[in-house]
Nucleic acid binder design. Structure first.
Lengths: 301, 301
DNA sequence: GTGACGCATAGATACCGTCTATGGCGGCGG
DNA sequence: CCGCCGCCATAGACGGTATCTATGCGTCAC
């Protein structure tokens, strides 16, 4: 049994005539006759009583017509839904973002994303790198914005922008007067986030692997860390996009002499079929961040 | 798009794996791969994300799965209903019967019909010949029991049994003493049914076309006619199966010298597909009536 | 009676679903 | 580290079948 045959039956029932029905189906009348007969034999039921003049549906046909209409309607629904889904730049897009990036990047890119990809419903998901990778691999995310390299051959990524680190100091700090701060100098009284934040490891690495020297703040956000620094508990190293928040907290920011920083990339499963959506999102974000990169380069000169 | 493809999709969604799904569908794995890819291209939607290890349904696939299940379920329903309908000796069977036959034949044949064709739901429809022919032609009846010849090439019929006419007389009638009554003798004071009853025309014809001689009873049934005769208004000619009712009314019955009678036949549309049901019904009725015919022949000797 | 209309049949053709054989890729164990 | 195994994708061959055109037959109307 074939969906095509079911449509044939509906056409005959509607037109009450093989010839017109065949025309409506875009096939020849003999084809329709043969197909209907085959279907009747397959079902073991005579569907139409062929009289010299008219073709009348059998009572058996009447009993079946409801289900036939149902099947054809469901098939049409499949086509309709598929037509809706065809655009890869439409529909839900679950995007993971690390916590040290989300609060500062999202306000910048939400409006451009909605303007460039109006049909794409972006659902942000904020969590640490490992959790995001896990959700990515279990198909709970479509893509993720990370500051680390690709994690394996099953995931692929594309660099979006470079984010320089900045030294964040209390105004009264002895280094606050410098134009530029050396990474190693921060190591002495640096505060870092809890384990699991990629920024913690990268900050410590930038400062020459000061190791256990820095105090670790458990269960704290970058925002809390800024407040701690402002209160004079130490210094820290922040990603460039958090500069605004740091200044609001009353901190002094200084570029780093070795130009330490991190690379933000968008990562997705190698087999993910909506490649176009990933690349469109990446491009919009990268384009939005391009002026910042030029400004930073200019400022560093 | 094909129902088969939809079943393939369901199998993959269920097994999470092409190989097992192909096995479950009874096809080879390459066939399944090709068909799924074709369907994906036809729909313009990627349905499954093929990873090295596992196959995961796309979100688009999830959105479609409901309709896919619906379509397959309706298709299965078609097959199931068809299986139920396959037996031509099952289901509703609308049988027209003329009024001068129905009350006397039906009590005889109902039980045998139910015994021989338990799945056949016989719906009797009592009306005059012309009305039955009309309903037959408009597919409102499946067959009819008539006492007349076929009405045209679009209808075919088969003789079931011969029903002799009998002279019905009041006990005090001058002909009541005869062993046998001649048809022509009845003509003098015969009562007949209203126009439209085939029995009226046949009775008048049997009596030598006495023409307008006989009184016509409008809007009366054969039962009423018997009561009229019993009350002494005249004589009449009744079909053999009504003998019991006539005797109950106190009438004297006498065979006719010329053996006038009528032939009961079952009539159906030439194109009617449930030929087997018609013939089965006819055979049961004919078999039930066979002892009567033999008895009548024996009695006439 | 004849022409028009409609369904059925027959034979030819092209498409498509299916198979087997094979390749590529990732994971697992020796 | 290498080879084996499981799984999906691809390629080429084969067979079935849906479709076509041409034709026949029956019915209806003028």
């Amino acid at each position: 049994m074939n969906l095509r045959d079911l449509r044939y039956i509906l056409a005959i029932a509607e037109h009450g005539q093989f010839s017109r029905a065949a025309e409506a189906c875009g096939i020849s009348q003999p084809t329709l006759s043969v197909q209907v007969r085959k279907l009747e034999e397959a079902l073991g039921v005579t569907l139409f009583e062929r009289g010299g003049k008219s073709v009348v549906p059998t009572e058996a046909c009447d009993r079946l017509l409801g289900h036939v209409r149902g099947a054809v309607a469901e098939a049409d629904a499949i086509l309709a839904v598929a037509r809706d889904l065809r655009d890869p730049l439409a529909g839900r897009f679950r995007l993971g973002i690390i916590p040290t990036l989300a609060p500062y990047l999202l306000p910048l890119v939400f409006a451009p994303l909605r303007a460039a990809l109006p049909a794409l419903e972006i659902e942000p998901w904020e969590d640490q790198t490992l959790a995001l990778l896990e959700r990515l691999r279990t198909h709970q995310l479509d893509a993720a914005l990370l500051a680390t390299e690709e994690d394996g051959p099953d995931l692929v990524g594309e660099a979006l922008f470079e984010e320089p680190f900045l030294a964040a100091l209390p105004p009264e700090h002895r280094l606050a007067g410098r134009e530029v701060v050396a990474e190693a100098e921060l190591a002495q009284d640096i505060l870092v986030l809890a384990d699991g934040h990629c920024l913690r490891d990268q900050a410590l690495a930038a400062c020459g692997q000061a190791g256990v020297l820095g105090s670790t703040l458990r269960s704290a956000s970058l925002s809390t860390l800024l407040n701690m620094v402002a209160a004079g508990y130490g210094t820290t190293l922040i990603p460039g996009l958090a500069a605004g928040a740091a200044q609001d907290a009353g901190l002094v920011l200084r570029p780093l002499s070795a130009r330490a920083g991190r690379c933000i990339r968008i990562v997705w499963r190698a087999g993910f079929p909506r490649r176009a959506a990933v690349e469109a999102v990446g491009e919009v974000i990268a384009a939005r961040l391009r002026p910042f990169a030029e400004g930073a380069a200019a400022g560093a000169v």
